[in-house]
Amino acid sequence: MKKYILIISTLFICQTAFAQSAQDEAFKAYSENGKLKFDSKRGHVLWTKKHPDKEDKDRQCSTCHTKDLTQKGKHAKTGKVIEPMAPSVNKDRYTKLKKINKWFKRNCKWTLGRECTNQEKGDILKYLTQQ
């Protein structure tokens, strides 16, 4: 029994460590060699900022992810359920750098119609990881 508790807690520590390292790496990469500083308040504003699309409907990050990050979201187009974005309720969030980068690229293009700048990505990630 003790052995299992040990293994399980090690796994948890490892996961937190992974998450930490993926996020650290992301912040390091977005900071452009430490030049940029990130602020979660700016990130929060960006999260709910409205961007009109071709049909003049507003697109926001929260269109799919909702404003309350502890809640499940829903893909605007396909309706597929998206697990909560807040790491406090969803431990799997922001644990892989590749995944974070992939979705920033996809979702910024979809929402803003362009890729996000490093400043924007860093601010948003700061906001997201603090939830």
Binding site: K77, K102, K105, R106, K109, W110
Partner: peptide
């Protein structure tokens, strides 16, 4: 579909 992965409907699969 894979040749056009950068314009996957409205998404860029990248």
């Amino acid at each position: 579909i894979f040749n056009t992965q950068h314009q996957h409907f409205e998404d860029d699969l990248d």
